[in-house]
Design a protein around this nucleic acid. Structure first.
Lengths: 201, 201
DNA sequence: CTTGCATTTTACCGATCGGTCAACTAAGCT
DNA sequence: AGCTTAGTTGACCGATCGGTAAAATGCAAG
């Protein structure tokens, strides 16, 4: 790994921490540069604008998410409905560990950014939407397989998956506003009670 | 109504629109003053700080909420579970009308602010928490009454109410990130499928 | 040894940030 | 009339914002 890449990744790492723990607007380039131990001019060598930085930050978080605990949670070897339990558990433990380290529950970076920027920047909004859409697909696949193997009564898997994603984001929102990851533990499992029936023609 | 009160209320009105349509950090005092048609010094005659302004803004939104469509939705004359349907409808029509006027779905100001500020200001967080708590109580009362009149199987009404609030916030979050109030229409009714059973001793 | 390119440093830009201050106006009370 | 006080104005504060440009550095291939 060459030096250039290292500087760039230190910038992104600093921005990930900053944007997650506060917000996009509240963390300036200068602060990111200080955290990363570089000069501002060096930042603009790698990123044409702050917006391009947050794009990279979203990409990295999405990558962490897709290859980390979510990949484990949605392990095809697990029974489909257990994957959903597993995902809730993972969200709970993740937020809990963040709070232990950081003193705060930081919530879901995608939800945080979505509410902050989606009225102001359609391209960012679209990027976040794609991530939500991918998450929804994970839920849908699990639901479809559960229906297929008879462990779940038939339903509108597309919409139920969307509802489950909404519920997860809502639970994390509420937990963040209580600064208490235990709320995820208490409310999370109810995600499986959500059902949207197939529309009758 | 004297002139002073009018200036103050114009400030708050400008701030409500600004904070709702963009965010707390992205709307400056100067812009609010321009919108309200006053000078900055005049602003600081009424509010010691921007934080005090957002407090007043939250109070006014909470008031609108408590005396407006939410009061109608949770009309005790309605069958309890219908109140929940009514609230979802109200949220849908409200967001839809905002989009028609403004071109954007702005979402729930309390959810927006909660995610933006709750890691940075515990007093604001507590204020928002109190609003969520009041909303939760509305749900809980409806659930308790539905259980009492036999239209709903017994459950943990406290937690189910919390889950319903989380779901509502999550649905609005997702709808905002799609800039599409129809998502509330599609997913909202599933709120009644949420159930958290009473803990067995 | 030199040329060339990527990287980094330093200094700087205009604009805006939240907030302060003193001067001024206007209305109400005595 | 005189005094007080709420309201208002406009100029100003230091700090920070996102972003720019040019010079300096390091490194690698020819």
């Amino acid at each position: 790994m060459n030096i250039a890449t290292d500087t760039r990744s230190r910038i992104v790492a600093a921005a990930k921490a900053g944007f997650h723990s506060r917000s996009y607007a509240n963390v300036g380039i200068q602060e990111i540069c200080e955290t990363a131990g570089i000069q501002k001019g060096s930042f603009y060598h790698f990123f044409p604008s702050k917006r391009d930085l947050v794009m990279a930050v979203i990409d990295e978080f999405a990558d962490d998410w897709a290859t980390g605990f979510v990949a484990e949670a949605f392990d095809p070897a697990l029974p489909p409905m257990e994957r959903i339990d597993y995902l809730i558990d993972a969200a709970y433990f993740w937020q809990k560990s963040i709070k232990q380290v950081h003193g705060r529950m930081l919530g879901c970076i995608f939800g945080n950014l979505a509410l902050e920027v989606s009225t102001q920047d359609d391209i960012l909004r679209a990027k976040l939407l794609a991530i939500f859409s991918a998450a929804q697909t994970r839920f849908k696949d699990a639901l479809d397989q559960a229906v297929a193997n008879g462990s779940l009564a038939p339903l509108d898997s597309e919409r139920t998956a969307e509802a489950m994603l909404a519920y997860l984001e809502g639970v994390i929102l509420l937990a963040k506003s209580q600064n208490d990851p235990e709320l995820i533990y208490r409310l999370g499992p109810a995600i499986k009670t959500l059902r949207i029936e197939t529309e009758r023609a």
